[in-house]
Design a protein around this nucleic acid. Structure first.
Lengths: 341, 341
DNA sequence: TTGTACGCGTTATCAG
DNA sequence: CTGATAACGCGTACAA
């Protein structure tokens, strides 16, 4: 099909044995400089490319890392992958990328497929449906290198990368309160998710420390279709208990809120202030009014995941990935959507 | 590390030879139903997973497709990949994904790495810098299955998937003219790109058929940093030759235009109308005013690319990918940014 | 119906 | 310094 020559043919051309050629190409100390030169130049001339599968079979590693995440159409995940790729590419690693589309069954299938060694490690952010984590436990129990980011599994003892969810949610909520909000809604993906729990906790604690009490009807969980989310938010905005502030724990629901507001007479920030965890800064600035964001360090999170794995995979006798949560802080950028008027 | 048992161990457990087990698992006609049952159930019990590299080495195929594209932070490319994955996953194929970041050098490196057989085929959209296409020619000349989408290489005789660039650009420009525009600007990525050329041609022909003449100072090429694009567009908007309409041949520059307009007193659509090739419909509706779009069928494009390749890869003696351009039409959605007032 | 032997392309071990 | 040989795990032609 595609390839040029293989090792044996290259060796024949050079009138050397395959093993000598292999060593020369791998820059072994036991080969003379002279033959190394000859071998390398002939390899280039004949465009020799080592067969990755033969090598993987022999060495029992694939030089490949798998990324499993809930969706692609999100600037957060896109940036994380960019960060991962930036690091892995420098080390000659390849990236298999999978989207679960927020579906646990798909997530399980993908994870099970990856257990056969096709990838040397997995970087993962779980689906919003994931509550049974047996597929992930099994993976980890077998010693498969696994790191989580953003939507983590606290119960699996490995390294996880997150942003300071609790604190930034607390600060974001506090900011709304300082701007005069008294009835603050909270928008979330599923309640199962680690990020939801932490961000919710931050929100609740901020309310509490201001003497405000949470109102259950103002806590909205994400549905599958965008349209349903928009309508749910709109209904909330028009209800008796209507909020004067919103904390959105996820990008998608902030956009849904803007859509919902468009369908009412409500004005941001006059009648309603909103802050959201968000990664697409260009869009945040273009929304009308521009959106106050809790900006997650997506690219850095990706880089850190990759660095951690590369260290584990390239150093010979590396210990297991430590059971720790590494937090990279978000930054709140105040724009028009929360300005008191 | 990770795996369970291998074929030999599984065979030993069953007191059968590896070949029998192999055949049983591959549902060979020469194995009795009875032993098949036994083998399969034991395989499940011991969680047998065939080693993908041994198999790839043996069969000389990887069950992997590579996707090479210019950037990840674009709803267009994200949707295309979703479409590709939808099809490939059903056929048990895996996806290696690479971003060139619009850098030819990176593109070359990636393509060269892929020549060693790590992937069975490549789906590709070239970088805006790509003018020397020798790396791609070489790939194709070796018989490597390759399809292009969106940003194609016309000179490489293989299958390409695009949208009806010329026609939709023509129609989009015509729409602006009908709404009263007389001085229409054209925003593009690099002039080298296939999509630029086609969309530009459609734009020019629409002007011509309305008796309008193009104004070179209104043709803007994309720079690398977003900020530069914004400033370039702003300067144009404030110049003597200022346009009353804009055709943006790419999503990114439509957003830059909105940013630029924010920095002036210009009003859309009163003083300036804008239409853009665009894929993120949710965002298009949220911009103020909402953006009239030429909506590219990104997901379908991805699906079609994948179907074409799967057919080529799975049918035994499939002919080469035909040298043809397959066009899937875009749809113009008129929103506020082009409403005459 | 099942088992034996070989090869896919590498790299590592052991001789020379 | 270099060459012969075995092994990674699988699938298949050939034998029984």
């Amino acid at each position: 099909m595609s390839a040029g020559v293989n090792l044996k043919e290259l060796a024949a051309e050079l009138k050397l044995s395959p093993s000598t050629v292999s060593r020369a190409l791998n820059d072994s100390y036991e080969i003379s400089e002279e033959t190394k030169k000859k071998v390398v130049s002939m390899a280039e001339k004949l465009n020799y490319q080592p067969n990755p599968f033969a090598r993987s079979l022999r060495e029992n590693k694939s030089k490949t890392i798998a990324v499993v995440m809930p969706e692609r159409m999100s600037s957060f995940f896109a940036k994380v992958i960019d960060g991962i790729e930036e690091v892995t590419q420098q080390h000659g690693y390849h990236l298999l990328v999978y989207s679960t589309h927020e579906d646990v069954e798909r997530e399980k299938k993908i994870v099970n497929l990856l257990m056969n060694g096709r990838a040397d490690a997995i970087v993962m952010s779980v689906s919003s449906q994931t509550s049974d984590i047996s597929h992930l436990t099994r993976l980890h129990d077998r010693g498969f290198p696994l790191v989580f980011f953003d939507r983590i599994c606290p119960d699996i003892p490995t390294t996880k990368f997150i942003t300071n969810d609790y604190e930034s949610s607390f600060e974001g909520t506090k900011h709304l309160i300082q701007q005069g909000c008294r009835k603050i809604a909270f928008l979330m993906l599923s309640k199962e998710l680690s990020i939801t729990k932490e961000r919710y906790r931050g929100y609740l604690d901020a309310l509490k420390s201001a003497g405000l009490s949470p109102e259950p009807s103002l806590h909205i969980t994400c549905a599958h279709e965008e349209e349903k989310n928009i309508e749910a938010i709109r209904n909330m905005l028009l209800s008796k208990e209507r909020p004067d502030g919103i904390v959105s724990s996820v990008e998608k629901l902030a956009l849904a809120t803007y859509h919902a507001v468009k369908r009412t007479d409500i004005k941001i920030p006059e009648d309603l202030k909103i802050i959201s965890f968000f990664s697409n800064l260009s869009i945040a600035g273009l929304l009308t009014p521009s959106l106050t964001t809790i900006t997650q360090p997506a690219f850095s999170i990706g880089e850190e995941c990759a660095k951690m794995l590369i260290k584990k995979l390239t150093k010979p006798r590396q210990p297991d990935l430590p059971n720790q949560v590494i937090s990279i802080p978000s930054k709140i950028t105040i724009r028009s959507s929360t300005i008191a008027v």
